[in-house]
Design a protein around this nucleic acid. Structure first.
Lengths: 388, 388
DNA sequence: CAATTTATTTTAACTGTCAAAATAAAAATT
DNA sequence: AATTTTTATTTTGACAGTTAAAATAAATTG
């Protein structure tokens, strides 16, 4: 140990972590009560109190406020059978109190939904498009068309839309609302959130699509009951999202979690990011397509969509074509490797695999298993898998 | 989007994250005041109030309590020059109020320190040992000898030792106090914290040695001023620690952060964990030794210590031996690859490289640079490096 | 020495929460 | 049917932690 004279950090003495402004605020009880009800769907006051470890008195207080504001409502439930005393009156979210729009842009199609405050969809839409990179203005137009469509369908009272969440592939800085790079966008460092906020006159937040999938799992999926889990998405690229203590982790600088560009081979296959050996360059759609067109001698001029091409490849593999099999097999092995890295680094109790390409399941299934095994070095780990 | 009927999680309805028991507690102001003083070294009440965004009245209250308990003290400072009104009276930690013992066990030597509550060392010791795996009882003996040594040297009043922190290599479950696997310990799943607590009659916590290095950086080193950073240690193995929002992140299941066993090559070099392609198997001490003994035809029977062997290798590389150079070069490239993965996943604003082998700097330096470049895919990232 | 300036302490009030009592609404018992 | 029991919710008064504002302290300036 080098016994240097402190302080090693200029301008600092003392010891211990140094927080600029230790802002230590507790989430207000109001919000916790509301979230507790939303989480449960229907729940009487007593149970909310138990769940939050606060007194029933406090719950009554907050709930009466929330009822007055129209955010909660009492529901008449059939009296529970075999219940002794005064029957509990269940609370639930008043779903009509507000609505949220969710948009998902990708290269081949855009989708959008309106959901109410209880998380139920009230309208959805989707359009297909030519996969190409377009200007920011064009994307704003496409997004705003999508929103117009949704609003027309839903026919909601004025001013009930609380906000818009937009997900798109690429490297997205959620906090700043900036798209650093995206396969569907021309240019770099686009202030997309701001542009769209101005256009729609609604608060807009943007996020990486893998993060959005992760949030969906956290809110509606298998991740709801888990404090920590990881999501790996495999589509046109490879993305990942991590939930730590019921919260989405976005990496130190707000970017990060770029599993797809994790290197799994020195001087390996070329990736669309320009580097070599990225995981994505072995398991993503375009990697399979690239191999398929070479190995199977498929007519590239036919220029069928990525999806069709992959389906063809899959058919051939199932039919016994060795070359096709090998392509999937290798992709599977690399995927397993990437997953084992995720497990070794994050040790998540749950790993969720998502993405349209999960259809090609039988080729992945056993390799996922081998990924599990490949991390057996630590006594005492089990990682359940869920697929969508 | 598959419109399945909810709930997808059995026994749950509603939506949103589901916390078992939302225990939402704020750290008490007392503790925050104390930590604020420790962090600053010397600081008057006014500034504590400003720093914590609380009223001066509250600070006075808490401080008077802490003064009474002997945890803080007022220091007479020379009146600041050019200061107008009533001079501030600075507060500081009363360092003698308690002491903490830190032990670091590794295969070739053990070290230990006693530090006071201000973080200043008051005694230290270190012993060399034969690298071998020993029984838990033996390790407990060695640790307890170390503690006896330290106590004898420091000559502190009775009952002033508040606790013991023990770091050792391997896979350590900090929360459970269990060593799942360690290169210096026989057996698996050893309840080391409990064994040592019983022996020393002091509270003992154990941790992975990489985590310990990370905590040291967080408390005393370059990480103090950072909310998020990563530490990568290269010694006999490769370890890593991650700090998220001023706190050490230990991975979902308490294990995790096993960067050394991250796979960087399919079917790659054999690792001591029994698998192939681990990063460790390319850049850790034993990997270099292994290559050195083959490539340089060094007499393995001479069985010089790892350190000596590596020094020899280093000398040869500097002297121009191509084989030796290549060994370092490959290690450096793989290290760069591993680091770029860390950056791509966590996006830390700071990466700290630590470990005795950092002496071999000139071989790593340029490769670290290449690692930085290799993540340039995202516009807007800079990662300063600090070495120890 | 009075006025000014800044730091700290005192005071009284305010806030959010809770324990305990009161009230409410049902089933079970007499 | 009236009473008791049981459980849920509301009301009440009290308490703990925090604060704004006033008071006090300790220096410098004019």
């Amino acid at each position: 140990m080098n016994r240097q004279t402190r302080p090693p950090v200029p301008g600092l003495s003392g010891c211990g972590p140094y927080r600029q402004h230790a802002a230590d605020t507790l989430t207000p009880l109001r919000q916790r009560v509301y979230e507790s009800v939303r989480s449960a769907g229907q729940i009487p006051r007593v149970d909310v109190a138990k769940h939050l470890n606060v007194s029933p008195a406090s719950v009554t207080l907050q709930v009466s406020d929330l009822l007055r504001n129209g955010l909660l409502q009492e529901v008449e439930a059939p009296p529970p059978p075999g219940h002794r005393g005064r029957p509990p009156v269940a609370l639930s979210i008043r779903a009509q109190a507000g609505y949220v729009i969710g948009l998902k842009l990708s290269d081949a199609n855009h989708t959008g939904v309106i959901i109410d405050l209880a998380g139920q969809p009230v309208a959805d839409t989707s359009v297909t498009r030519d996969p190409c990179r377009v200007s920011p203005e064009e994307i704003v137009n496409e997004a705003s068309d999508l929103v117009a469509h949704l609003l027309a369908r839903a026919d909601l009272p004025e001013g009930k839309i609380l906000g818009v969440g937009l997900g798109l592939p690429g490297i997205v800085d959620h906090a700043e609302g900036v798209v650093n790079w995206s396969p569907i966008l021309q240019g770099q460092g686009i202030q997309l959130a701001q542009l769209l906020t101005e256009r729609l006159k609604l608060p807009v937040t943007i996020d990486n699509d893998a993060n959005l999938v992760t949030l969906a799992e956290l809110w509606f999926g298998a991740g709801r009951a888990r404090a920590d889990f990881a999501v790996v998405t495999i589509e046109h690229g490879v993305g990942m999202g991590l939930v730590v203590d019921h919260q989405l982790y976005r990496g130190g600088g707000g970017l990060g979690m770029e599993l797809g560009h994790t290197k799994v081979q020195l001087d390996g296959a070329l990736c669309r990011c320009g580097q070599r050996g990225c995981l994505e360059a072995y398991v993503a759609d375009y990697a399979l397509v690239r191999e398929a067109s070479v190995a199977l001698d498929l007519d590239r001029e036919k220029a069928s969509s990525t999806g069709v091409l992959l389906d063809t490849l899959y058919e051939q593999a199932k039919a016994g074509n060795q070359a096709a099999r090998m392509i999937f097999r290798r992709a599977g092995r690399f995927l397993a490797l990437g997953l084992s890295n995720v497990v070794n680094l994050f040790d998540p109790p749950l790993v969720i695999l998502a993405g349209e390409r999960m259809r090609y399941d039988y080729l992945y299934a056993e390799d996922v298993l081998s990924a599990m095994k490949s991390l057996a070095l630590s006594a005492g780990r089990v990682a359940p898998d869920v697929e969508i």
